[in-house]
Amino acid sequence: MNKQIRINYIESFGTQDGPGVRMVVFTQGCLLKCLYCQNPDTIPIQGGTEMSWEEIFDKAMRQKEYFGTRGGITISGGEPLLHAEALLPLFKAIKEAGYTTALDTNGFVWNHHVEDLLEYTDFILLDIKHINPHTHKKLTGVQLSPILEFAHKASQLNKRIWLRYVLVPGWNDSDEDLHEWARFGASIKGVERVEILPYHTLGVPKYAEMGQEYLLSDVKTPTPDLKNKTKQIFEEEGLKNIVVK
């Protein structure tokens, strides 16, 4: 009996999470508690709607004509790797149908199901939120080391990696942090693209709806100068194909 997957939302026209036109599936549940999380409603393990992989596959096939040669399906979240076992038949089927698969992950989960899933994964969008272990813990609630370890393992599996960095003023925008983050990124083989995601406040109203306090309410969105500086530092450290979103 296949496991059901808890789904928070499905975006049919995803253009921000991997190459081409993609169906982006936001799964329910995440082990990280990032202070700025834009989708706090996806954090609880319970919630969302249960779907079988076949249902998700059928939905993707209703829009396969739009995928072209680059597109396909991206599993985001929440944290998709929490559903690695249940996602495996989905990814196999998508690959079989001739489309690409991508995971938008925080890299905090590793087990043999994840290893199996990565075999059928074309793109890993890996979000490393901070390079300083201490601040990382403060910002996300979890250790940094498993995430860096994940990057190495994915690289050894010859995966195509897109690194992502949510740029949060006052939290991870110091020159020192930026240099160090970029040096780590440059050391990972298989990184094809680096995306700087400027912190935004579009998710803030969700906290009020959920009756939770938003702890970064004094943080402003990055200035154009900061975005440029970040890109420049990343380039200096040898990162290529940097996109500021």
Binding site: T15, V21, E65
Partner: peptide, 8 residues
């Protein structure tokens, strides 16, 4: 992406 969307 617009090209892919229209093709689709």
């Amino acid at each position: 992406n617009l090209v892919d969307m229209m093709n689709g």
